[in-house]
Design a protein around this nucleic acid. Structure first.
Lengths: 216, 216, 216, 216
DNA sequence: AATGAATGAGCATTCATTCAT
DNA sequence: CATGAATGAATGCTCATTCAT
């Protein structure tokens, strides 16, 4: 698990070369923030868990909030953003013949990411309401990128008569919340229930497909 | 707004007779917890906002956490729980001829509640991950009551052949996350977007109905 | 035990007529002060133990320190003072033929008093260093009354050639600390050791008598 | 006086190397605890007197009680314990030909120690009744070490027929309380009276020697 | 007389941050 | 670069005391 987390860190933060101490600080901070919340985690606790001196944290991150941002911003910038965009680009380029296949791939992809980055995602969700900077980034990302892109695709399918006549934004909302609802139930609400992931993925896809079908 | 909040408080906490000071403390705490989070709100701040001495808070609520619980537990116990159950009882007693009508009434009802209790619901969602007591109550409520009841209804409809063959639990998840996803988008994510509530409600219902339809 | 304590209270405080609430407050305060110390006992704790409202304490005793004084001053005034004086008066009036008999009676008398008033005596000893008012009273009592009287008696015996030639004050100190040392060991230091009181009293008397004897 | 106290501190706490701030904190704490009692001394007061920030106290002593223990435990462990034992070892090894000489040396030694450590001894005596940990240590030290050693010596003298036939424990009690009674009168009760220490020491020794003599 | 809600100063303790080494 | 002692403002909480009922 430690090795796995380290890889996660390397993956999330690779661009800036991290020293070993910095990695340890980030891992410790992610673990503590995720377990007890940002406001209830003390920097001294992080220092102890990371095995560094208290002052060392502040050499790398000017304030505690900077440390939080160093954790959460990359997730927003790299994970929620481009990953999604890459996927969609594949769809837009007809790499998936059917919507089902796109949904399946997307869900699977999201699932993998969420499983690995769960602690960071938890921190992000917790702190978005209280950090205006995060909030704005998030809204932008969701509103402009995610909804925008999805809406675009949807309008395509609607013109081909394959899905229901409904404002693309509403369709986007329905699809996204269905997918997110699944992932949220799966990993946040009931992570310990016995899930048959393949089956539930199919059911979710089926539900969405029917839900968007022209009915009758 | 103040008057409105006071009514909210009265409604949530009516059984125990609240003194004026207690009401003021609760209102101030709800406002602050909702805006800045439980851990980042100081009791002195609440006292100042409520216009009482700091000691007064601790006369009524032995600890800061007790104050939090006094706010969140009733919401769980009274609002999420029985309200839902009452609605479902109506369905079970055939008060709604069609699933659509039931969904419509439920969504509308939830919408009203959420609109009024938004700050408290926000606090609840924020603190569930960090307060084991809340977490357990919530899981119980959702898992045993909400999912249980909904599953029961679903099985009824499935026997009548009106909805798709799929484990009731999965159906329940899909329906509930669709409804919650709507309300979450509407009130938490984009409360300031221009929403046509009646229309979106219908679209959500339509989506769910088709999604659960036997397809073709 | 409760009844016994009530009698103690009545005995200590009889002159001012105490209401039932006052008695309860005093008993509760003595118990708490004795167990946890004056400074570490809160008035609310006393109120709860006494079964009265917090305000009631302050109706009878203007401040917490007044309550302490109401407990400790009578002990000094009535118990340490006059009792001793009465005993000594008996000696001075030749009611005891031999010093031994006087010592024996005095020790026995002190022993009874100490057993009953132990909690109050403990409080007194604890607070004397910190309450100048008490300290002065105590020094006066010990220095002027106790030492004074004893010195007077001692000088008598010295003139009769029955005890050693030594300043009366020094003799008084030796006698008093011997007696007090016994009682202190018996009731404060090792109250739970198995003591044969009669025997130890005799030994103490014998030690003092020899110690004051003309040697040889 | 400041220099003297610093030496005291160095003597009491030498093994662990104390920083300058730690010394200042200890000196300030000893002064305040001794004057006003542990419970009535606030940490902010100690900080101010020591000329350090309040947080500094808690960096070195996790709680206020830890600070108390850091002051009192070494006194029990180092001063009351080994010093006494060393003295007795000298007696046991026949370094003193006569009991008188032993008593004289012991009293003198105790007197020096007490004079220097008076504030700390005061704190110790004050807090023993309320700190179970201290109480146990003290009882152990007195009961098992002091009384045990003294009893052993006494039995030796009794076998040589030099002192009275009486259970060694009782003899020990009489001797110890006589010595302690002198020191207590001298330094705690009437420190400001004019004492001729040499003379009073001799009188106390004489009293004990006669008291334990075979009478006649 | 008795109550107990209300007060606000005070307390022990924590914490993010700084800085000399 | 890294350390960790030092800081002092802030925090949750307690307490003796007051006062309207």
């Amino acid at each position: 698990m430690f090795e796995q987390e380290e890889m996660l860190i390397q993956q999330l933060f690779d661009e800036e070369k991290l020293t070993e101490k910095q990695s340890k600080i980030l891992i410790a901070a992610i673990e503590s923030f995720s377990e007890k919340g940002y406001a209830s985690t003390s920097t001294s606790e992080i220092a102890k868990k990371a095995g560094v001196a208290e002052g060392t944290i502040f050499r790398h991150y000017k304030t505690k909030k900077d440390l939080l941002m160093a954790i959460v911003v990359p997730i927003m910038a790299k994970v929620v953003g481009p990953y999604i965009i890459n996927d969609f680009d594949k769809v837009l380029n007809q790499q998936y013949d059917r919507v089902e296949d796109f949904l399946r791939a997307t869900i699977e992809n999201r699932r993998e990411v969420l499983k690995k980055l769960l602690p960071v995602v938890k921190i992000m969700l917790q702190e978005i309401p209280f950090q205006p900077e995060l909030r704005e980034q998030f809204i932008d990302l969701i509103a402009k990128n995610l909804f925008g892109r999805v809406s675009h695709i949807i309008e395509g399918y609607q013109q081909k008569g394959q899905i229901i006549e409904m404002p693309a934004l509403s369709v986007a909302r329905l699809v996204i919340t269905s997918v997110m609802g699944y992932l949220f139930s799966r990993y946040i609400l009931f992570p310990e229930a016995p899930w048959d992931d393949e089956l539930e993925t199919e059911r979710t896809i089926q539900f969405i497909m029917h839900g968007l079908g022209k009915g009758e």
